[in-house]
């Protein structure tokens, strides 16, 4: 049975296969009744409206139906029942389960108890593989994943979105540039692992020194609670803000991505520039999740 738990479980071949399917779906080459009669169980133990809506949309576009418990109902379950039991019960109702849960490793646990495929839609600070796939997909739409310079900017220490993406990119011919404030750098063991996978990783402390050498800039949120006081947060956040002025003289094919929602990381004036691809990235959630649903239920 195919579970989608962690991006680490994927080979390049399997990722390419899913992205190729997503590409065909994006070009409207798909059977809108492919999952007719199938039921998807959505178990969201913490709110993530967009992820849930994009899975609901993906299922509807393939002719299937959804059943769900929302996080209010789920929170009452959390008090009484183990996740293992909930998963065993919902396995009897649905043909696949999408799980979002606050505990790391929850999706791995679910896959041990489910009798249907489990798709991880985020487990705590842990994995969120469909996000990584749509990030990859958005890059691949703009350029082949060959000799690409990708910059990861923001909180690279706690931001697991960035870790997952870096790991997935290490399967391709990509040079990685990390740009993080002091104390929020990519953990040394992650850097070491990427290098052991033959990836070139260069660490930078300022965005100005590297912005002109990038094909992709992936911006993530820097969270206020990582800083001792508001003033030091604003000091750091403003020096990592993406503005039209910063983007003067960049490579023509540069694309800027952000998993959204953004706060102050990207100046709204950047939205009108050709580099801004974060709304396209958000839209790609649907074809990529359609491809995943087909992968596990066909």
């Amino acid at each position: 049975m195919d579970h989608i738990i962690s991006i680490r479980d994927f080979s390049r071949e399997r990722l390419d296969h899913i992205l190729d399917t997503a590409q065909r779906i994006g070009d409207n080459q798909y059977d809108a009744r492919a999952l007719s009669g199938k039921i998807l169980g959505l178990l969201f133990f913490e709110p993530s409206t967009r992820t849930r809506m994009s899975f609901e949309t993906a299922m509807a576009r393939l002719g299937g139906a959804c059943i769900s418990i929302d996080c209010v109902e789920a929170s009452s379950i959390v008090k009484g029942e183990t996740l293992a039991d909930t998963i065993r019960v919902i396995s009897g109702y649905a043909d696949a389960i999408v799980l979002r849960h606050p505990k790391e490793g929850a999706a791995r646990l679910a896959s041990e108890f489910a009798t249907v495929p489990v798709i991880n839609a985020g487990d705590g600070a842990g994995q969120h593989p469909s996000q990584t796939m749509l990030d990859l997909f958005t890059i691949r739409q703009s350029m082949p994943l060959e000799q690409v310079d990708v910059g990861l900017l923001g909180d690279l220490r706690y931001g697991r979105t960035a870790h997952s993406l870096a790991y997935a990119l290490s399967l391709y011919d990509v040079n990685l540039h990390t740009i993080a404030p002091k104390g929020l750098e990519l953990p040394p063991n992650v850097v070491q692992e990427l290098r052991s996978r033959k990836m070139k990783v260069r660490e930078h402390s300022s965005i100005e020194e590297v912005i002109r050498d990038l094909d992709v800039l992936y911006v993530t949120r820097i969270q206020r609670e990582r800083f001792p006081d508001t003033a030091s947060y604003y000091g750091v956040a403003s020096s990592y803000r993406i503005t039209p002025e910063l983007l003067e003289g960049v490579r023509e094919r540069l694309i800027i991505l952000h998993p959204l929602p953004r706060v102050d990381e990207i100046d709204p004036r950047v939205d009108a520039l050709p580099y801004a691809r974060y709304f396209e990235q958000a839209r790609n959630a649907v074809p990529v999740r359609m491809a995943l649903l087909l992968e596990v239920m066909k």
């Binding site: 183990t82 996740l83 293992a84 606050p102 505990k103 790391e104 490793g105 646990l109 041990e112 600070a125």
Partner: peptide, 10 residues
Amino acid sequence: GCISNTKEPI
């Protein structure tokens, strides 16, 4: 934050 540190049967 790990699921293995909860009351789950694992």
